[in-house]
Write a protein that binds this DNA or RNA. Structure first.
Length: 419
RNA sequence: CGGGGUGUGGUGUAACGGUAGCACGCAUGCUUUGGGUGCAUGUAGUCCGAGUUCGAAUCUCGGCACCCCGACCA
């Protein structure tokens, strides 16, 4: 894409009402727009990042047998009353509204009810199980207080998978399968080395749920981490009994702040029973599927990555989710420079390398370089009169390191080695 | 929801109760071309509503919005 046609702009200063680093950087770089407290719109660059995150999640969910669906955000009152989760006493973060035709509807804060109601219509035999439907969909939660920029919003995407198993044992196998896929996802996004499986409160159907907590100062959660074993305990269940149960020693634990990037739960048959989702087993008896649910928040991941991978000049995206693989920058309006850059631009595109070309003629060199650093695309190719005189261009990695002066004809393999 | 704070052009900021000013941006022209170039001209503002006052950005009350701490976060 040519930057001269990109409508979003960068700015020197962040709005005063944003204090979280992730939102400040993302707004300054033109990735997002704040609509309301805790509600952000995504502009071209930001949407590309979010889509990349979603795509990684999608690939890993598909790889373990997930089937992508898309459930409605608008939900009927009657369905949720069947599980006693419509009343504000039970679930206090509903966005509800009345229908002109009469009755009430709500914006889904989660989707256990609708997915179970749907599966009820499509599952009837043990032969139909197990199933792993999932979606990447907007969730709405009327939080009393939004904060931490993109990391705790009132409207946000969630990847939510639900598993339907024939037996508890089968459920546990699926649960482990999803757990492994989650680690792969966090690894691919670039936060794997600081993300830990964390034991948290599990609700009624299992002693624990599992959270995936990424160690970060900005985190809202406090966890107790055993780095050697690679597991942690959330402060909310941090008791001697729990430590004993998990075989952890208090002295070996480190108290750290962390961001919950994923959470997986065993649901038992709570929803399948309440909504009468059944299947006929091999022996002829009617049974309820054992369910699990598994969430990841793409918006929160984007905010977290922005927060973790940035410096005093701006964002530093991991290549797996960067809005573009390469930022091509013309450092002069001279015809020879622009023509060479145009050739490189087409060359990169024809090799399937996503490139943002700063072809602007009105911006100064300093402005272009400052913008490129703020936007944070991992690889910059700078084309200017000096290096062009030797038929070279400069490859600079945003995260730092020595610039390479590469002959124009050898740029493609040099870039491919980096992305 | 409890506590605290803040609302001034698009953005960041100044102004004792007395002419709303500065910087960035944007527009026009010139200038400059390897780290936000310089100059000139122009553009645009006191969150909303009451009240006090000769006079309100400034004081009072109400509303709305935003931020922070806490609580909450299947």
């Amino acid at each position: 894409m040519r930057q001269s046609s990109l409508f979003s702009t960068t700015r020197r200063e962040a709005p005063r009402d944003e204090t979280s680093r992730n939102a400040q950087l993302l707004i300054r770089a033109g990735f997002v727009h704040k609509e309301l407290a805790g509600v952000y719109s995504f502009l071209p660059l930001g949407w590309r990042v979010l889509r990349n995150i979603m795509q990684i999640i999608r690939e890993e969910m598909d790889a373990i047998g997930g089937q992508e669906v898309h459930l409605s955000a608008l939900q009927s009152r009657s369905l949720w009353e069947q599980t006693d989760r419509w009343s504000d006493e039970e679930v206090d973060i509903w966005f509800k509204t009345s229908l002109n035709a009469g009755g009430e509807a709500g914006l889904a804060p989660t989707h256990e009810e609708p997915i179970t109601a749907i599966m009820r219509e499509h599952i009837s035999s043990y032969r139909d199980l197990p199933q792993l439907p999932y979606q990447i969909q907007l969730k709405f939660r009327n939080e009393l207080r939004a904060r931490s920029g993109l990391m705790r919003g009132r409207e946000f995407y969630m990847k939510d998978m639900y598993t339907f198993a024939r037996t508890q044992q089968e459920h546990e196998e699926l649960y482990e399968r999803v757990k492994r896929a989650y680690f792969t996802i966090f690894q691919r996004i670039g936060i794997g080395d600081r993300t830990y499986l964390t034991f948290a409160s599990g609700g009624i159907f299992s002693q624990y749920s599992h959270e995936f907590q990424t160690v970060a100062e900005v985190g809202e959660d406090t966890i107790y981490l055993d780095r050697e074993k690679g597991i942690a305990v959330n402060k909310e269940v941090f008791t001697d009994a729990v430590l004993a149960d998990l075989g952890l020693e208090r002295e070996r634990l480190e108290e750290v702040r962390a961001v919950e990037v994923g959470n997986i739960f065993s649901l038992g048959t709570r929803f399948s029973e309440a909504l009468q989702c059944t299947f006929r087993d091999q022996d002829g008896t009617l049974k309820y599927p054992v369910m699990g649910c598994y969430g990841i928040g793409p918006n929160r991941l984007m905010g977290l990555v922005a927060e973790l991978f940035s410096d005093d000049r701006g964002l530093v995206w991991p290549s797996s989710i960067a809005p573009f693989a390469v930022h091509l920058i013309s450092l002069s309006t001279e015809a020879s420079v622009q023509e060479t850059a145009a050739t490189i631009y087409r060359d990169l595109q024809s090799h399937g390398i996503e490139v943002l070309w700063d072809d602007r003629t009105e911006a100064s060199v300093g402005e272009k370089l400052a913008d490129a650093d703020l936007i944070g695309i991992p690889v910059q190719i700078r084309v200017g009169p000096k290096s062009l005189a030797e038929r070279r261009a400069e490859i600079v990695q945003r995260k730092g390191g020595t610039p390479q002066y590469v002959p124009i004809g050898e740029l493609i393999p040099a870039v491919e080695a980096l992305v």
